Simulated assay, not measured.
Amino acid sequence: MIDFFERKLRLQDLEVWDVRCGESIYRMLIFDENRLPELADLDIPSNAIADDLRENLITVSVYSNTLVKDEHIDDIDQFAKQLTDHVALAHCHVVTNFYTGAIDEMSKWFLKEKLNLNYEEIPLTQLWHLNQDN
């Protein structure tokens, strides 16, 4: 059960959320890869037909300081699906993966790796808006 959630950052292709389940805190990064998925991206058999692939891939990376608790996996996965429900899911694969690591450091690494963005360099005036791409 999710007790609390808070969006930390919203960019054109990325949303960052903190999610609390009991005493556990998770950082969820929802990223629009803006590309066709590959079979390696998906949890489907390698002999699947490429025609089954949709037009876009959205990845949900969930980080926690400790191993995710089994009882939290479904709740977090469902929450991610609710947050991505506005996209044309018939045309997008949404894939959720869980990782262990320092959530602040992993978030900074993710921003740098995927968007070449340093969180500390986002001007405070952009953080006044719903969308930080302003």
Rank of each mutant, 00 (worst) to 15 (best):
C21V: 15
G22M: 12
G22I: 09
G22L: 09
E23V: 10
S24C: 12
S24Y: 11
S24Q: 14
I25T: 15
Y26V: 04
L29R: 00
F31A: 06
F31G: 02
D32I: 02
D32A: 07
E33M: 13
N34I: 09
N34C: 12
R35T: 03
R35K: 14
R35A: 04
L36Q: 13
L36S: 11
L36T: 11
P37A: 07
P37M: 08
L39F: 10
L39Y: 03
A40S: 13
D41Q: 06
D41K: 03
L42Y: 08
L42W: 11
L42V: 07
I44S: 03
I44C: 10
I44F: 05
I44E: 03
P45S: 10
P45V: 06
S46R: 11
S46K: 09
N47H: 15
A48M: 08
I49G: 04
I49K: 12
A50F: 10
A50G: 02
A50E: 12
D51V: 05
D52A: 05
L53M: 01
L53C: 03
R54F: 11
E55Q: 10
E55Y: 05
E55W: 09
E55K: 10
L57S: 03
I58N: 00
T59W: 01
T59S: 09
T59E: 08
T59C: 06
V60Y: 04
V60L: 03
V60N: 00
V60K: 01
S61F: 01
S61T: 12
V62K: 01
Y63K: 11
Y63H: 14
Y63R: 10
T66P: 00
T66H: 14
L67T: 06
K69V: 14
D70H: 11
H72P: 00
I73Q: 04
D74V: 13
D75H: 14
I76C: 07
Q78N: 10
Q78M: 08
Q78D: 12
A80K: 02
A80G: 12
A80P: 00
Q82V: 04
L83H: 08
L83D: 00
L83N: 06
T84I: 05
T84R: 06
T84C: 14
D85R: 13
D85E: 10
H86W: 08
H86F: 12
A88K: 05
A88F: 11
L89I: 14
H91K: 11
H91C: 05
C92L: 05
C92P: 01
V94Q: 04
V94M: 01
V95F: 10
V95H: 07
T96I: 08
T96H: 01
T96E: 02
N97G: 09
N97H: 15
Y99P: 03
T100Y: 03
T100C: 14
G101E: 04
A102D: 15
A102N: 09
I103S: 02
D104P: 00
E105P: 00
E105A: 13
M106H: 02
M106K: 15
S107F: 11
K108S: 13
K108D: 15
K108H: 07
W109I: 14
W109E: 14
F110H: 03
L111W: 03
L111Q: 01
E113F: 13
K114D: 02
K114G: 00
K114N: 13
K114A: 11
L115V: 07
N116V: 08
N116M: 05
L117R: 03
N118F: 04
N118C: 02
Y119P: 07
E120F: 08
E121W: 14
E121A: 11
I122C: 04
P123L: 00
P123H: 04
P123M: 02
L124F: 11
